Amino acid sequence: MIYFDNSATTQIEPSVLDTYMRTSQRIFGNPSSLHLVGGQAYRLLEQSRKQVASLLNVSVNEIFFTSGGTEGDNWVIKGTAIEKAPFGKEIILSAIEHPAVSESAKQLERLGFVVKFLPVDNRGFVKVEALKNLITSQTILVSVMAINNEIGTIQPIQAISEVLEAFPKIHFHVDAVQAIGKIPITSWLTPRVDFAVFSAHKFHGPKGVGIVYSKEGKKLAPLLNGGGQERGLRNGTENVPGIVATAKALRMLQEDQAKKNAHQRNIKQFLLDSLRKFEKVTVFSEACEQKYAPHILCFSLKGVRGEVLVHAFEKKEVFISTTSACSSKKGLTPGTLQAMAVSPSIATGAVRLSLCEKNTMVEAEQFMIIFQQLYQKFSKIN
Protein backbone atom coordinates (compact mmCIF):
# COMPACT_ATOMS: atom_id res chain seq x y z
CA MET A 1 0.00 0.00 0.00
CA ILE A 2 1.13 3.54 -0.81
CA TYR A 3 -0.57 6.25 1.24
CA PHE A 4 -0.22 9.74 -0.29
CA ASP A 5 -3.18 11.38 1.47
CA ASN A 6 -1.56 12.74 4.62
CA SER A 7 -3.22 16.15 4.33
CA ALA A 8 -6.54 14.40 4.84
CA THR A 9 -5.27 12.51 7.87
CA THR A 10 -2.10 10.85 9.10
CA GLN A 11 -1.56 7.47 10.67
CA ILE A 12 -1.27 7.84 14.43
CA GLU A 13 2.26 7.31 15.71
CA PRO A 14 2.44 3.96 17.58
CA SER A 15 4.01 5.51 20.68
CA VAL A 16 1.36 8.25 20.64
CA LEU A 17 -1.37 5.62 20.46
CA ASP A 18 0.29 3.82 23.37
CA THR A 19 0.25 7.04 25.39
CA TYR A 20 -3.43 7.50 24.58
CA MET A 21 -4.31 3.98 25.66
CA ARG A 22 -2.28 4.05 28.87
CA THR A 23 -3.73 7.41 29.86
CA SER A 24 -7.27 6.19 29.12
CA GLN A 25 -6.77 3.21 31.39
CA ARG A 26 -4.91 4.86 34.26
CA ILE A 27 -6.04 8.50 34.35
CA PHE A 28 -9.75 8.16 33.69
CA GLY A 29 -11.14 10.82 36.03
CA ASN A 30 -13.02 13.95 35.01
CA PRO A 31 -10.55 16.86 35.33
CA SER A 32 -13.37 19.03 36.70
CA SER A 33 -14.02 16.67 39.62
CA LEU A 34 -12.82 17.73 43.07
CA HIS A 35 -11.61 14.33 44.26
CA LEU A 36 -8.19 12.71 43.89
CA VAL A 37 -8.95 10.88 40.64
CA GLY A 38 -10.21 14.09 39.06
CA GLY A 39 -7.18 15.96 40.37
CA GLN A 40 -4.84 13.51 38.66
CA ALA A 41 -6.58 14.12 35.33
CA TYR A 42 -6.52 17.87 35.85
CA ARG A 43 -2.79 17.94 36.57
CA LEU A 44 -2.07 15.86 33.47
CA LEU A 45 -4.30 18.12 31.37
CA GLU A 46 -2.49 21.25 32.53
CA GLN A 47 0.91 19.60 32.10
CA SER A 48 -0.04 18.89 28.48
CA ARG A 49 -1.23 22.47 28.00
CA LYS A 50 2.09 23.72 29.34
CA GLN A 51 4.01 21.44 26.96
CA VAL A 52 2.00 22.56 23.92
CA ALA A 53 2.47 26.22 24.85
CA SER A 54 6.22 25.68 25.21
CA LEU A 55 6.44 23.93 21.82
CA LEU A 56 4.57 26.82 20.17
CA ASN A 57 6.51 29.41 22.20
CA VAL A 58 3.36 31.05 23.57
CA SER A 59 1.85 31.58 27.01
CA VAL A 60 0.12 28.65 28.67
CA ASN A 61 -2.98 30.85 29.09
CA GLU A 62 -3.19 31.16 25.30
CA ILE A 63 -3.79 27.46 24.62
CA PHE A 64 -7.29 25.95 24.43
CA PHE A 65 -8.25 22.41 23.48
CA THR A 66 -11.10 21.57 21.10
CA SER A 67 -12.33 18.59 19.08
CA GLY A 68 -10.34 19.50 15.96
CA GLY A 69 -9.62 22.05 13.27
CA THR A 70 -13.22 22.45 12.14
CA GLU A 71 -14.42 23.33 15.63
CA GLY A 72 -11.47 25.67 16.13
CA ASP A 73 -12.15 27.57 12.91
CA ASN A 74 -15.87 27.76 13.65
CA TRP A 75 -15.17 29.05 17.14
CA VAL A 76 -12.83 31.81 16.00
CA ILE A 77 -15.05 32.97 13.13
CA LYS A 78 -18.38 32.84 14.94
CA GLY A 79 -16.97 33.71 18.36
CA THR A 80 -15.48 36.88 16.90
CA ALA A 81 -18.77 37.74 15.21
CA ILE A 82 -20.75 37.33 18.45
CA GLU A 83 -18.21 39.23 20.55
CA LYS A 84 -17.58 42.11 18.16
CA ALA A 85 -20.98 42.53 16.46
CA PRO A 86 -21.62 45.84 18.28
CA PHE A 87 -18.48 47.26 16.62
CA GLY A 88 -18.98 46.01 13.07
CA LYS A 89 -20.27 43.18 10.91
CA GLU A 90 -17.69 42.85 8.15
CA ILE A 91 -15.48 39.78 7.75
CA ILE A 92 -12.66 39.36 5.23
CA LEU A 93 -11.54 35.88 4.11
CA SER A 94 -9.13 34.78 1.46
CA ALA A 95 -10.90 33.26 -1.53
CA ILE A 96 -9.17 29.91 -0.92
CA GLU A 97 -10.10 29.13 2.68
CA HIS A 98 -11.01 25.67 3.95
CA PRO A 99 -14.79 25.07 4.20
CA ALA A 100 -14.52 25.17 8.00
CA VAL A 101 -13.82 28.89 7.56
CA SER A 102 -15.76 29.78 4.42
CA GLU A 103 -18.94 27.92 5.40
CA SER A 104 -18.85 29.47 8.88
CA ALA A 105 -18.70 32.89 7.25
CA LYS A 106 -21.57 32.04 4.91
CA GLN A 107 -23.71 31.12 7.89
CA LEU A 108 -22.95 34.49 9.43
CA GLU A 109 -23.83 36.13 6.14
CA ARG A 110 -27.36 34.78 6.52
CA LEU A 111 -27.47 36.48 9.92
CA GLY A 112 -26.68 39.91 8.49
CA PHE A 113 -22.87 39.93 8.42
CA VAL A 114 -21.01 41.09 5.31
CA VAL A 115 -18.38 38.68 3.98
CA LYS A 116 -15.67 39.96 1.65
CA PHE A 117 -13.23 37.76 -0.23
CA LEU A 118 -9.57 38.56 -0.62
CA PRO A 119 -8.58 37.51 -4.18
CA VAL A 120 -5.62 35.36 -5.17
CA ASP A 121 -3.40 35.49 -8.24
CA ASN A 122 -3.26 32.77 -10.89
CA ARG A 123 -0.74 30.82 -8.79
CA GLY A 124 -2.92 30.78 -5.68
CA PHE A 125 -1.28 33.49 -3.55
CA VAL A 126 -3.34 36.10 -1.70
CA LYS A 127 -3.11 39.61 -3.14
CA VAL A 128 -1.97 41.53 -0.08
CA GLU A 129 -2.48 44.96 -1.64
CA ALA A 130 -6.17 44.18 -2.13
CA LEU A 131 -6.60 43.83 1.62
CA LYS A 132 -6.04 47.53 2.17
CA ASN A 133 -8.97 48.35 -0.10
CA LEU A 134 -11.32 45.87 1.58
CA ILE A 135 -10.84 47.03 5.18
CA THR A 136 -13.38 49.53 6.51
CA SER A 137 -14.35 50.83 9.94
CA GLN A 138 -16.81 47.93 10.14
CA THR A 139 -14.21 45.17 9.63
CA ILE A 140 -13.88 42.92 12.68
CA LEU A 141 -11.99 39.89 11.34
CA VAL A 142 -9.45 38.87 8.70
CA SER A 143 -8.89 35.15 8.12
CA VAL A 144 -6.13 33.73 5.90
CA MET A 145 -4.78 30.17 6.00
CA ALA A 146 -1.05 29.65 6.43
CA ILE A 147 -0.71 26.86 3.82
CA ASN A 148 -3.38 26.13 1.25
CA ASN A 149 -4.67 22.60 1.69
CA GLU A 150 -5.27 21.98 -2.03
CA ILE A 151 -2.12 23.13 -3.83
CA GLY A 152 0.27 23.88 -0.96
CA THR A 153 0.90 27.59 -1.46
CA ILE A 154 2.46 29.30 1.57
CA GLN A 155 0.42 32.44 2.11
CA PRO A 156 2.09 35.80 2.90
CA ILE A 157 1.11 35.94 6.56
CA GLN A 158 4.00 38.25 7.45
CA ALA A 159 2.99 40.80 4.79
CA ILE A 160 -0.66 40.61 5.88
CA SER A 161 0.46 41.10 9.49
CA GLU A 162 2.26 44.27 8.47
CA VAL A 163 -0.90 45.64 6.85
CA LEU A 164 -2.96 44.81 9.94
CA GLU A 165 -0.52 46.56 12.31
CA ALA A 166 -2.46 49.73 11.49
CA PHE A 167 -5.72 48.04 12.56
CA PRO A 168 -5.08 46.54 16.01
CA LYS A 169 -8.79 46.07 16.82
CA ILE A 170 -9.35 43.69 13.88
CA HIS A 171 -9.01 40.03 14.82
CA PHE A 172 -6.49 38.16 12.65
CA HIS A 173 -7.10 34.42 12.36
CA VAL A 174 -4.78 31.88 10.73
CA ASP A 175 -5.84 28.33 9.92
CA ALA A 176 -2.50 26.58 10.51
CA VAL A 177 -3.74 23.00 10.17
CA GLN A 178 -1.49 22.26 7.16
CA ALA A 179 1.40 24.45 8.36
CA ILE A 180 2.33 22.97 11.70
CA GLY A 181 5.52 20.96 11.34
CA LYS A 182 5.95 21.90 7.67
CA ILE A 183 7.29 25.46 7.80
CA PRO A 184 8.84 27.46 10.68
CA ILE A 185 6.30 28.58 13.28
CA THR A 186 7.65 32.13 13.17
CA SER A 187 6.67 32.43 9.50
CA TRP A 188 2.95 32.22 10.29
CA LEU A 189 2.53 32.78 14.05
CA THR A 190 3.64 36.40 13.90
CA PRO A 191 3.14 38.83 16.80
CA ARG A 192 0.13 40.26 14.93
CA VAL A 193 -1.71 36.92 14.63
CA ASP A 194 -4.47 36.74 17.23
CA PHE A 195 -5.75 33.21 16.67
CA ALA A 196 -4.32 30.05 15.13
CA VAL A 197 -5.96 26.65 14.76
CA PHE A 198 -4.43 23.13 14.67
CA SER A 199 -5.71 19.56 14.37
CA ALA A 200 -3.90 16.62 15.98
CA HIS A 201 -4.71 14.00 13.36
CA LYS A 202 -2.79 16.01 10.76
CA PHE A 203 0.49 15.36 12.60
CA HIS A 204 0.24 11.70 13.70
CA GLY A 205 -1.91 12.47 16.73
CA PRO A 206 -5.38 11.15 17.55
CA LYS A 207 -8.56 12.22 15.79
CA GLY A 208 -10.96 14.35 17.79
CA VAL A 209 -8.42 16.75 19.34
CA GLY A 210 -7.64 20.28 18.23
CA ILE A 211 -5.69 23.24 19.56
CA VAL A 212 -6.60 26.92 19.41
CA TYR A 213 -4.02 29.59 20.11
CA SER A 214 -5.87 32.65 21.39
CA LYS A 215 -3.72 35.67 22.15
CA GLU A 216 -4.16 37.05 25.65
CA GLY A 217 -6.37 40.12 25.67
CA LYS A 218 -8.33 39.10 22.55
CA LYS A 219 -11.92 38.16 23.30
CA LEU A 220 -13.94 35.34 21.78
CA ALA A 221 -17.49 34.40 22.70
CA PRO A 222 -17.87 30.69 23.50
CA LEU A 223 -19.88 28.54 21.11
CA LEU A 224 -20.37 25.76 23.64
CA ASN A 225 -21.80 26.70 27.02
CA GLY A 226 -21.78 24.43 30.04
CA GLY A 227 -19.61 23.60 33.00
CA GLY A 228 -16.90 26.21 32.66
CA GLN A 229 -14.13 24.07 31.16
CA GLU A 230 -11.24 25.75 29.32
CA ARG A 231 -11.78 28.87 31.43
CA GLY A 232 -15.40 29.00 30.33
CA LEU A 233 -14.55 29.54 26.67
CA ARG A 234 -14.78 25.98 25.38
CA ASN A 235 -17.17 24.12 27.63
CA GLY A 236 -17.39 20.34 27.72
CA THR A 237 -15.33 17.68 29.48
CA GLU A 238 -11.81 17.69 28.07
CA ASN A 239 -10.53 14.64 26.19
CA VAL A 240 -7.58 14.15 28.54
CA PRO A 241 -6.10 11.01 26.91
CA GLY A 242 -6.36 12.61 23.48
CA ILE A 243 -4.82 15.87 24.68
CA VAL A 244 -1.91 14.08 26.37
CA ALA A 245 -1.32 12.09 23.17
CA THR A 246 -1.53 15.29 21.11
CA ALA A 247 1.12 16.99 23.21
CA LYS A 248 3.41 14.01 22.64
CA ALA A 249 2.68 13.97 18.88
CA LEU A 250 3.49 17.69 18.65
CA ARG A 251 6.78 17.17 20.47
CA MET A 252 7.73 14.30 18.18
CA LEU A 253 6.70 16.33 15.12
CA GLN A 254 9.27 18.99 15.93
CA GLU A 255 12.14 16.54 16.36
CA ASP A 256 14.47 16.76 13.33
CA GLN A 257 11.85 18.89 11.58
CA ALA A 258 14.25 20.34 9.01
CA LYS A 259 15.46 16.86 8.07
CA LYS A 260 11.91 15.55 7.75
CA ASN A 261 10.84 18.46 5.57
CA ALA A 262 13.89 18.11 3.32
CA HIS A 263 13.05 14.43 2.86
CA GLN A 264 9.51 15.31 1.78
CA ARG A 265 10.77 18.03 -0.57
CA ASN A 266 13.10 15.56 -2.28
CA ILE A 267 10.22 13.19 -2.93
CA LYS A 268 8.00 16.03 -4.10
CA GLN A 269 10.69 17.28 -6.48
CA PHE A 270 11.03 13.82 -8.01
CA LEU A 271 7.26 13.60 -8.50
CA LEU A 272 7.09 17.08 -9.99
CA ASP A 273 9.91 16.40 -12.44
CA SER A 274 8.35 13.08 -13.43
CA LEU A 275 4.78 14.34 -13.89
CA ARG A 276 5.86 17.30 -16.02
CA LYS A 277 7.12 14.89 -18.69
CA PHE A 278 3.54 13.93 -19.56
CA GLU A 279 1.88 16.13 -22.17
CA LYS A 280 -1.65 15.93 -20.73
CA VAL A 281 -0.62 16.73 -17.16
CA THR A 282 -1.05 20.19 -15.65
CA VAL A 283 0.82 20.74 -12.38
CA PHE A 284 -0.46 23.40 -9.96
CA SER A 285 2.17 23.07 -7.23
CA GLU A 286 5.84 24.06 -7.30
CA ALA A 287 8.99 23.09 -5.43
CA CYS A 288 10.09 26.57 -4.26
CA GLU A 289 10.82 26.26 -0.54
CA GLN A 290 9.82 29.84 0.26
CA LYS A 291 6.53 29.68 -1.64
CA TYR A 292 5.23 26.09 -1.44
CA ALA A 293 4.80 23.52 1.31
CA PRO A 294 7.08 20.47 1.22
CA HIS A 295 4.26 17.93 1.36
CA ILE A 296 1.48 18.94 -1.07
CA LEU A 297 1.45 18.35 -4.83
CA CYS A 298 -1.62 19.01 -6.95
CA PHE A 299 -1.98 18.11 -10.63
CA SER A 300 -4.62 17.38 -13.25
CA LEU A 301 -4.79 14.83 -16.06
CA LYS A 302 -6.62 16.25 -19.06
CA GLY A 303 -9.84 14.46 -19.92
CA VAL A 304 -10.04 12.46 -16.67
CA ARG A 305 -12.11 13.56 -13.69
CA GLY A 306 -10.29 13.60 -10.38
CA GLU A 307 -12.48 11.00 -8.71
CA VAL A 308 -11.94 8.61 -11.63
CA LEU A 309 -8.18 8.89 -11.23
CA VAL A 310 -8.46 8.46 -7.44
CA HIS A 311 -10.37 5.20 -7.85
CA ALA A 312 -8.03 3.99 -10.59
CA PHE A 313 -5.10 4.39 -8.19
CA GLU A 314 -7.12 2.82 -5.40
CA LYS A 315 -7.37 -0.41 -7.42
CA LYS A 316 -3.56 -0.46 -7.38
CA GLU A 317 -3.55 0.14 -3.58
CA VAL A 318 -2.33 3.72 -3.99
CA PHE A 319 -4.35 6.25 -2.03
CA ILE A 320 -4.58 9.91 -3.07
CA SER A 321 -7.29 12.57 -2.89
CA THR A 322 -9.28 14.97 -5.02
CA THR A 323 -7.85 18.18 -3.48
CA SER A 324 -9.66 18.84 -0.17
CA ALA A 325 -10.75 15.58 1.46
CA CYS A 326 -13.61 17.40 3.20
CA SER A 327 -15.14 18.31 -0.17
CA SER A 328 -14.06 15.31 -2.25
CA LYS A 329 -17.33 13.36 -2.04
CA LYS A 330 -19.38 16.35 -3.22
CA GLY A 331 -17.82 16.33 -6.69
CA LEU A 332 -17.35 20.09 -6.68
CA THR A 333 -14.80 22.09 -8.65
CA PRO A 334 -11.83 22.65 -6.30
CA GLY A 335 -12.34 26.05 -4.68
CA THR A 336 -8.69 27.08 -4.86
CA LEU A 337 -8.37 26.32 -8.57
CA GLN A 338 -11.65 28.11 -9.20
CA ALA A 339 -10.32 31.19 -7.39
CA MET A 340 -7.18 30.95 -9.56
CA ALA A 341 -9.41 31.11 -12.66
CA VAL A 342 -8.31 27.64 -13.81
CA SER A 343 -10.54 26.26 -16.58
CA PRO A 344 -13.27 24.01 -15.10
CA SER A 345 -12.40 21.27 -17.60
CA ILE A 346 -8.91 21.12 -16.09
CA ALA A 347 -9.84 21.87 -12.48
CA THR A 348 -12.34 19.00 -12.24
CA GLY A 349 -9.49 16.62 -13.01
CA ALA A 350 -7.33 17.81 -10.14
CA VAL A 351 -5.95 15.37 -7.60
CA ARG A 352 -3.71 15.92 -4.60
CA LEU A 353 -0.75 13.95 -3.34
CA SER A 354 0.21 14.77 0.24
CA LEU A 355 3.27 13.36 1.91
CA CYS A 356 4.64 12.81 5.38
CA GLU A 357 8.10 11.97 6.65
CA LYS A 358 7.25 8.26 6.56
CA ASN A 359 6.84 8.18 2.78
CA THR A 360 9.79 6.97 0.71
CA MET A 361 11.38 7.57 -2.65
CA VAL A 362 10.67 3.94 -3.52
CA GLU A 363 6.96 4.66 -3.07
CA ALA A 364 7.26 7.70 -5.31
CA GLU A 365 8.97 5.65 -8.01
CA GLN A 366 6.27 2.98 -7.77
CA PHE A 367 3.62 5.70 -8.00
CA MET A 368 5.11 6.94 -11.26
CA ILE A 369 5.21 3.44 -12.74
CA ILE A 370 1.50 3.04 -11.97
CA PHE A 371 0.75 6.55 -13.23
CA GLN A 372 2.41 5.81 -16.56
CA GLN A 373 0.25 2.70 -16.93
CA LEU A 374 -2.91 4.67 -16.16
CA TYR A 375 -1.85 7.50 -18.43
CA GLN A 376 -1.56 5.13 -21.36
CA LYS A 377 -4.88 3.51 -20.52
CA PHE A 378 -6.77 6.81 -20.36
CA SER A 379 -5.03 8.11 -23.50
CA LYS A 380 -6.44 5.16 -25.45
CA ILE A 381 -9.93 5.76 -24.04
CA ASN A 382 -9.82 9.47 -24.85
Score class of each variant (00 low, 15 high):
Ala200Ser: 13
Thr246Ala: 07
Tyr42Pro: 00
Ala8Pro: 05
Glu46Asp: 07
Ala159Pro: 11
Thr190Gln: 11
Leu189Met: 10
Lys330Pro: 03
Arg265Tyr: 01
Ile369Phe: 15
Met252Lys: 15
Leu44Arg: 10
Ser321Val: 14
Asp5His: 07
Val60Asp: 04
Leu93Cys: 11
Thr70Gln: 06
Glu230His: 01
Cys298Val: 08
Asn133Arg: 13
Gln290Ser: 13
Val362Cys: 13
Gly210Asp: 06
Thr70His: 02
Glu216Ser: 15
Glu71Lys: 00
Pro14His: 13
Arg234Ile: 10
Asn133Cys: 08
Gly124Glu: 09
Phe270Pro: 10
Gly29Val: 03
Ser15Gln: 15
Phe172Ala: 03
Cys326Gly: 15
Leu108Thr: 00
Lys380Pro: 14
Leu220Met: 03
Ile27Glu: 12
Glu289Tyr: 11
Ile96Tyr: 05
Cys356Pro: 07
Leu297Thr: 07
Glu71Gly: 00
Lys380Arg: 15
Glu90Trp: 03
Ile160Trp: 03
Lys302Gln: 10
Phe64Lys: 00
Phe87Asn: 15
Ile183Pro: 01
Thr336Tyr: 08
Thr190Cys: 06
Lys132Phe: 04
Val310Tyr: 02
Tyr292Arg: 04
Glu109Ser: 06
Val126Cys: 11
Leu164Ile: 09
Ser343Arg: 14
Arg123Glu: 15
His204Phe: 12
Gln47Phe: 01
Phe65Ala: 00
Trp75Tyr: 06
Val177Phe: 02
Ala179Tyr: 01
Pro241His: 08
Gln338Leu: 12
Tyr3Glu: 12
Thr80Trp: 03
Pro184Met: 01
Ile140Arg: 00
Ala200Cys: 11
Cys356Leu: 13
Leu17Asn: 12
Leu309Val: 04
Leu45Asn: 04
Leu36Glu: 15
Ser161Asn: 07
Ala53Lys: 05
Asn261Asp: 07
Leu56Lys: 03
Pro222His: 01
Cys356Phe: 10
Thr333Leu: 07
Ile147Gly: 02
Leu164Gln: 09
Ile320Tyr: 02
Pro241Arg: 07
Arg352His: 09
Lys116Ala: 05
Tyr3Cys: 05
Lys182Thr: 02
Phe270Asp: 10
Ser324Pro: 13
Ala262Cys: 04
Ser354Val: 12
Ile185Ala: 11
Gln290Arg: 12
Arg49Ile: 00
Val163Glu: 15
Ser379Met: 12
Gly331Ile: 00
Glu230Arg: 02
Ala262Phe: 04
Pro206Phe: 12
Leu301Pro: 04
Glu230Lys: 02
Arg26Trp: 14
Ile63Phe: 00
Ser104Asp: 05
Leu56Gly: 01
Gly124Ser: 10
Lys132Gly: 14
Val115Ile: 14
Ser32Lys: 14
Ile63Gly: 00
Phe65Trp: 01
Gly349Pro: 06
Leu223Val: 02
Leu141Ile: 07
Tyr292Gly: 01
Arg231Ala: 10
Glu314Cys: 09
Val197His: 09
Met252Thr: 08
Thr10Arg: 05
Ile77Leu: 11
Asp273His: 11
Tyr292Thr: 00
Lys106Thr: 08
Gly232Thr: 04
Glu97Ile: 00
Glu365Pro: 04
Gly210Tyr: 05
Ser324Met: 14
Tyr20Asp: 05
Lys78Glu: 09
Glu165Gln: 14
Met361Pro: 14
Glu90Tyr: 03
Lys127Met: 09
Val310Pro: 02
Gly39Arg: 06
Val193Phe: 09
Gly210Arg: 04
Glu357Phe: 14
Ile91Gly: 04
Ala258Tyr: 07
His263Asn: 07
Gln51Asn: 13
